[in-house]
Amino acid sequence: MSGEVLRLENVVAGYEEKAVIKGVSLSVREGEKVVIMGPSGSGKSTLLKTAVLLVRPWSGRVVLDGEDLTSGRADLRRARAKTGFVFQSYNLFPHMKVIDNVALPLRLVKGYSKEAARRKALEMLKLVGLGDCGEKYPLQLSGGQQQRVAIARALAMDPIILFLDEPTSALDPELKAEVLETLRDVAHRGIAMVVVTHELDFAREVADRVVIMEDGVIVEEGDASLLWSPKTERARRFLRVIGTASAPT
């Protein structure tokens, strides 16, 4: 069994007074693809943010690559540099060219020279099929293209684990398809991935493990076969909903 890259131990987290994550434990091994599903408001997005301490847990531990991020002594910037995070709304920097969106973090966080950062950025853009869009600005691209740039930006950092927070939820069906295609390629690169998604087909295809959340806790967890034959009633109910609704957002 390969090593563990991420471990959440009984994490509780939330916003202001309201707990959104109510005691979640999760372990992700090297290269493992974990798909998190569940109704909206069940705490999936918050859980991802907690894993890199974009949301600080109230209690519990987050261990990334052997380092306890919740200890208070952890270098969060260095830890985040080892991870990639793709948001639902892409979150590119609109005032920078596409290539600079990918190259700037390499320079600022990974210490690349200007030229090396550009080379690597271009390589990553080619990887997501956007090698000719480097000189454009994010808002001149379609949503699907922007999301692929965001994926290139995250991959450029050579992450040991990639977090994807509903990467296709903001997209039209045809744009969804191109992003999912890119994500399938990424999944074959051997990077551990934790994906929050409602895309059942995609989940069935890439998931090594499936986690179903509801109301801030994990209600069912298992390998991808769970997506065909859930054991708990709550998971069955949820899968029936997303299985019949063609494009849930």
């Binding site: 890199v52 995070f85 920097f93 973090p105 966080v109 950092m157």
Partner: peptide
């Protein structure tokens, strides 16, 4: 906020976020 969150997730320091993301815009 989403842009600031994204800079933070990339490992930018607060000053880097200010200098490259917030102030130019």
């Amino acid at each position: 906020d989403s842009q600031i969150l994204s800079a933070e997730a990339l490992g930018f320091s607060y000053l880097q976020t200010l200098r490259y993301v917030i102030l130019p815009q």
